[in-house]
């Protein structure tokens, strides 16, 4: 499939509009859910889940990750892995110390 062709781009434009609608809808949903005053853990899970969907939509369609090349995926996979280390290891380390304190 030629990604540069006129027909393809015109089809894409329609997709962009639907993605925009989905993003706007999810924004309203996540705000609405926050007013429900869910228990803390559930609230975090729902909010992050919705943010993850929104982020994936932006990355997949606006940033064309759906049709991107292998080399980009490789770099992003490595980044995601190190991002996870960076986010989790300090928190786990400090959580273990806290568990001794309490």
């Amino acid at each position: 499939m030629d990604h540069g062709s006129k027909e393809h781009i015109e089809r894409q434009v329609k997709v962009y509009i639907s993605v925009f609608a989905a993003l706007a809808f999810l924004t309203v949903v996540t705000v609405a859910v926050s007013y429900l005053k869910l228990p803390f853990a559930a609230g975090v899970a729902v909010a992050l889940f919705i943010a993850l969907i929104k982020g994936s939509l932006v990355a997949a369609f606006f940033m064309h990750l759906l049709t991107e090349k292998q080399i980009i995926f490789s770099i992003l996979a490595v980044t995601a892995l190190f991002f996870a280390f960076l986010l989790l290891l300090p928190a786990i380390t400090s959580a273990e110390v806290m568990s001794y304190v309490s």
Binding site: F82, L89, T93, E96, V97, S99
Partner: peptide
């Protein structure tokens, strides 16, 4: 990328980590 805290053993790190 996963060895950095060996500089921090003396910060009172737990035994597991």
């Amino acid at each position: 990328f996963v060895v950095w805290a060996h500089h921090m053993f003396l910060t009172g790190m737990g035994t597991k980590m």
